[in-house]
Amino acid sequence: MYGYIIRRILLMIPTLVGVALIIFVLMRMIPGDIVVLRLRGEGGAQVTDEMIATERRRLGLDKPMWRQFNDWMLGIAKGDLGTSMWTGRPVIEELDNRFQLSLQVALMATLVAVLLAIPLGTMAALRQDRWPDYVVRVFSIAGIATPAFWLGILMILAFLIVFKWMPPIKYTPIWVDPVANLSQLIWPALATGYRYSAVATRMTRSAVLEVFREDYIRTARAKGLMEHIIINRHALKNAMLPVITVIGFEFAFLIGGLVVTEQVFNLNGLGKLFVSAVGTTDYVLVQALVLVSAFTFIITNFVVDLLYAWLDPRIHYR
């Protein structure tokens, strides 16, 4: 098991290098030059070609592609993600608060989703084709059909109109002031958590339905067990396997994927940073963000795989 964990961690390196290579090449295929954009962007017609060449040299863009890639990789190996070409600040500083914020929203949304999805999905399965099932199904289809940002807009409007209140705009880390932090971040977590729970609810429902057709559930009944033991002990543990996959995938997506929702709630998260970095073709920043997302996906998958082994004794990693 430990050997497996170490091997999985080592395997992350080639995966990340592969991702890095792809994004590195892709960024350089996009038309638009950050130096031109930055120096001549706002009526800077007097900027000479000479100055642009100097700036390119300073950013290292004049070197051959393989050298640039090499330098970037070496920097990362030393823990240096580089410097934003647009703001001139180290990428790590740009990411710092935003990553915290995005991670917290993603974790809270996941919590909301799990707390809604597992009880609701199980209840719907147990009362299949009766009114609780219909209610849950309508609730979850509505969740899939409702964009999180739209729900967010409705929330903010409701706060403004009914309570004459607006969530704070400035980000406060949770350990500095939990109340201020939560009163800002709980709303986007609820809005995205609802949509997220909808997917997970449907998955839970179908997984529980499937497990209930298994022979071992009939065996449990034949033993005269109480219904709640049959559900909690015999059915749910088996039904959780596909649900965990969905939850893990959605979680990884939420980190860096919440572009519009961040816009609505005016959050400075990774999603927003991503869009602006692509807009200015800030190579270094986009590359770093893609690596961070890829890393989140890889880690989440890894954790999901470990949870699998924990839930299902038949799965053995060597």
Binding site: D215, T219, K237, N238, L311, P313
Partner: peptide
């Protein structure tokens, strides 16, 4: 079916 009549995760 003894193969499927026992719960695999318990």
């Amino acid at each position: 079916e003894p193969m499927t009549s026992l719960n695999p995760v318990l």
